[in-house]
């Protein structure tokens, strides 16, 4: 007996949100329908086999003009790792100056992606200057 499944995936690559149908036989993709561009097809195939996401979060920054710096993963990571990475980053502290694109952590948790800064953080003597 062959196992036959159809999975519906909503593409999250762009705001259009195409509904894509992926048919699988014995876990192998046999057809993909409903996408409007090649990125969507790739996403849907990925999503049924091993869903991945880019993580966006913050890490603490000591003596910066803001107490946190925003970061993201340099590429998508397995969906079930999001919380784990986030928890790991909660224990990380960095120091200014930090510029957009600076690598905060290389190869985070051996997942093959880096954590990069998405907002600058500059040193300030008078911390939290906007709370004065």
């Amino acid at each position: 007996m062959k196992s036959y499944v159809e999975k519906r995936v909503i593409c999250i690559i762009c705001p259009r949100g195409c509904e894509i149908r992926v048919r699988l036989v014995d876990g192998k993709i046999i057809s993909v329908e409903g996408y409007s561009c090649p990125m969507g097809k790739k996403y849907a195939e990925q999503e049924v086999c091993s869903p991945k996401r880019v993580l966006m979060t913050i890490v603490r920054c000591e003596n910066g003009d803001l107490p946190v710096v925003s970061v993201k993963t340099s590429g998508p990571v397995p969906k079930d790792k999001l919380l784990e990475i986030s928890r790991y980053l909660a224990g990380i502290k960095v120091k200014p100056p930090i510029r957009i694109g600076d690598v905060i952590i290389r190869n985070v948790l051996d997942l093959g992606v880096d954590i990069v800064a998405t907002r600058p953080c500059m040193p300030v003597e008078n911390k939290y200057s906007d709370q004065k």
Partner: peptide, 8 residues
């Protein structure tokens, strides 16, 4: 892009 990357 993220918001800060965009606006910077």
């Amino acid at each position: 892009l993220t918001g800060p990357e965009f606006v910077y």
